[in-house]
Nucleic acid binder design. Structure first.
Lengths: 121, 121
DNA sequence: CTAAAAGCTGACGTTGGCGTTAGGTGCAAG
DNA sequence: CTTGCACCTAACGCCAACGTCAGCTTTTAG
């Protein structure tokens, strides 16, 4: 597959894919003319990268995590870092739930201005 | 309260508070000498702003939401936007949960390399 | 064979949420 | 009064994750 097709299937831009390569997150073989050629698995890989980015993992950490997902093994030092990231993600989930509740309050008020529903702590 | 105290109590930098004012998110009275003076409620307000930012709301939307939280009323057009934000937040929560599971897989592998636990879909 | 589409490599631009000087002022204490 | 800390404005710096040219080459369709 060439870069455009991968981009389409994964729902990202061509530029993003070249950026991932620059960051050592995604490799590609090259055709004699120099064009990138990806295996089918690249699409899933890109989606995973996007997912990790969306979770707020810095590319530094993503770079470390990706080989582990592949190989099924991880260097010992990485464990602590992963656990720390897990904690951070949990915290963000908690925060998001709180904000969602706040938003629900405002939405309820907007829908029915007379209801005194606001459960501000 | 002056700016330093608010910053300390809310756990943000002085710079951030001035930035919020610049963005019309937080107002302050001024002393004759030009120094900012905040009411006690400012601390809670700052925490709320931080929370909304953390949820990924653009400052544009935060600017619209804040008066509604105060007044208990909202312009009709805002409702759709808020609901849309709610959907986005839900999506982000879902994403984060998925990533957390992925992370748990890798953590499990790292802890016990022989376990073939990975529940990849 | 030839044009158009798709790729390539730089390299600079963008956006948000502040950090960080630089150079000057307000204000409470000793 | 003066010392010194907190505060002020203005303005540049920063970082990530790409967007967006510009100018050229490779590949593919007709």
């Amino acid at each position: 597959m060439r870069i455009g097709e991968v981009a389409d299937k994964a729902g990202v831009s061509v530029r993003a894919l070249r950026y991932y390569e620059e960051q050592d997150l995604l490799q590609a073989r090259r055709s004699p003319g120099g064009q990138r050629h990806y295996p089918d698995t690249a699409v899933r890989r890109v989606r995973l990268i996007q997912q990790l980015y969306a979770a707020g993992l810095p590319s530094r950490v993503v770079r470390q995590v990706l080989p582990c997902v592949d190989s099924g093994e991880a260097p010992p030092g990485l464990l602590d870092q992963l656990v720390a990231e897990r904690v951070r993600i949990d915290q963000r989930i908690t925060d998001l739930l709180a904000v969602r509740d706040r938003l629900d309050d405002v939405i309820a008020i907007t829908r029915d201005p007379d209801s005194d529903c606001c459960h501000v702590e």
